[in-house]
Design a protein around this nucleic acid. Structure first.
Lengths: 337, 337
DNA sequence: CTGAAAGCGCTTACAG
DNA sequence: CTGAAAGCGCTTACAG
């Protein structure tokens, strides 16, 4: 028991008095095994605690039953939920997760990460790094070999050569802004995310569109660029109040910045929502526990995560069916908030 | 380019006019290769984009260069930081991460998870699920085969059969409580985490110890059990003020609950910190942006994550050196907050 | 410095 | 229903 190496399929076969491929049939639940043989082999497996070596299995099958997941910012709300939902769904479907976290989305070297993951023989790759700067140019140009399924998560500028699953960020901006309009707001400011982020630009677009639909102008002085943090949300309100003293509402592109805004409002003695109404995005756990509760746009991150895995699984199956890929038009799936 | 399968070591060998094991030497940076040969092989590798199949390599070497990481609650502060730090450090050291997330720490089946991870041939396992209820009894009894390195992360009740890296939770309680005492507080309440959590009990113990060191009694009416959420922090303050009207300070066992407390204090018109001082734990990003800034105990989570990986790596190396394990006494490493 | 042989632990056709 | 053979893509001794 001390130095016993893990048993192999050969050990099990010997102990059960059958060949290794019969054991293989048993562990793969194939039907063509005599009931009695099945029983005996299973008994041995139970006794020895045998578990097939996934490396060996992967080598012969040409698949690892692992999904490569590339993400940024696990400490933030969105990514942690997405990765959590992906892992859960993947586990249910028999996939393991090989996680790669990147430090800076803007300078990420997609090529080397994809190559590394493929060397690990992952069956498919879920790329959940947001588009920042031109860090997805590789996905538009198709400069990366089409070898092995890659799913892009999150919206991106232009058309991807790869299938994409994303939540409609412009709709988030529209929903939030419409809510503020419905509440009677006339001068609605916005704190955006960093403008290098496509998601941030989309939320801004939704805000602008909704304002302009009322016949008013989406003035530049109503826009402050933020960086997703509480601190900048705070500064943003001071800026907005300076440039637009009539301000009566703000759309914060995420909840963190919304909290900063509320902090600032409190500091300068403006009541929320009476003086200034605020809407955020994310529905973080704290949202409903502030003075007053924060109104926020909910992102269906869990649903999106489930969809991510189902989609990549379908891609994997498809690519295994037809070795000669039919070059199916990449589908762009968009989920509504 | 369309249907090109990935090249193998054999393809590279053929193209370079050498044997496969010469290529093997090159990709493993072994010194005994003629400069000219080295050059030629590297050239072919560059041209073909060859990357060794890690499954095959793992099969022969008996190691996958993957670490199994088991965690709970990626959406919470602590776990997301720990996992992030582990991934970063692992990547630097050449390990991939196979992530397993569990849904309920109390009912987790350690045996089946460890078995599954080992079937994937991970080189070592980092078990970062907190001790809740008796979900670590397996680690005390050693009922699990000692096969393959396992590192436990987080403090636990009693002695583990496996090495452990943890942050001193009792010290967190002591630091926080002492800070409140130093600020002049006389009646210091506590909102604990769920008492089924060992970490929560340790923070409570630190609070109790520090109170009693002053010669006062750590009365039961000063203790409210929470569940780590903002909502319960809020309720907790109401409860405490009822049972102890003299209350002038509270130690919240995490920042979320501290925020809830502050919300409640605001609601009932008590000033912080004048009327009631609050200290939390975690140092979440929002801490410093509330009215007033929250004082909090910082957990060195990133340091701990780095230490986790270095420790498991050392365990892996040791177990590979001596096949006949010397049964080294498991070390229990404790990091101070 | 380099190569022929064997083997890691499985699965995949192929026979029977 | 079951087994002998070959092979997945590497690395590890072992020769030279």
């Amino acid at each position: 028991m001390a130095k016993s190496k893990r048993p192999t399929i050969r050990d099990v076969a010997a102990a059960a008095g059958v060949s290794t491929q019969t054991v293989s049939r048993v562990i793969n639940n194939r039907p063509d095994v005599a009931p009695e043989t099945l029983e005996r082999v299973q008994e041995v497996i139970r006794e020895t605690g045998y578990a097939p070596n996934m490396l060996a299995r992967g080598l012969t099958q040409g698949r690892s039953h692992q999904l490569g997941v590339v993400a940024y910012g696990l400490e933030y709300f969105g990514p942690s939920r997405i990765v959590g939902a992906i892992e859960r769904t993947a586990a249910e479907m028999g996939y393991g997760i090989s996680l790669t976290l990147i430090l800076d989305p803007e300078t990420v070297d997609a090529d080397s990460i994809l190559t590394g993951l493929r060397a690990r023989q992952v069956d498919g790759i879920i790329w959940a790094v947001p588009e920042v700067g031109d860090n997805r140019s590789w996905a538009r140009s198709g400069g990366i070999d089409g070898n092995g399924p890659v799913l892009l998560v999150g919206p991106m500028n232009g058309r991807s050569q790869f299938p994409t699953v994303s939540i409609d960020n412009a709709a988030m901006g529209r929903l939030a802004t419409q809510h503020l309009l419905d509440g009677g707001a006339r001068h609605i400011g916005i704190v955006t995310g960093p403008m290098s982020w496509w998601e941030a630009r989309q939320r801004l677009a939704g805000w602008r569109e909704t304002i302009e639909a009322t016949g008013r102008e989406a003035e530049d002085c109503l826009i402050v660029e933020g960086d997703w943090t509480v601190a900048c949300g705070e500064q943003a309100l001071y800026r907005l109040l300076e440039t637009c003293p009539d301000l009566d509402a703000v759309f914060a592109s995420n909840d963190q910045m919304a909290l900063g805004l509320m902090h600032a409002a409190h500091t300068v003695g403006r009541q929320i929502p009476e003086d200034i109404a605020v809407v955020g995005v994310d529905n973080i756990a704290e949202s409903s526990h502030f003075w007053p509760p924060l109104t926020t746009v909910n992102q269906p991150l869990a649903d999106a995560g489930v969809l991510d895995v189902h989609t990549i699984d379908a891609m994997i199956e498809r690519s295994r069916q037809a070795r000669r890929v039919l070059e199916p038009a990449p589908e762009q799936i968009v989920v509504e908030p």
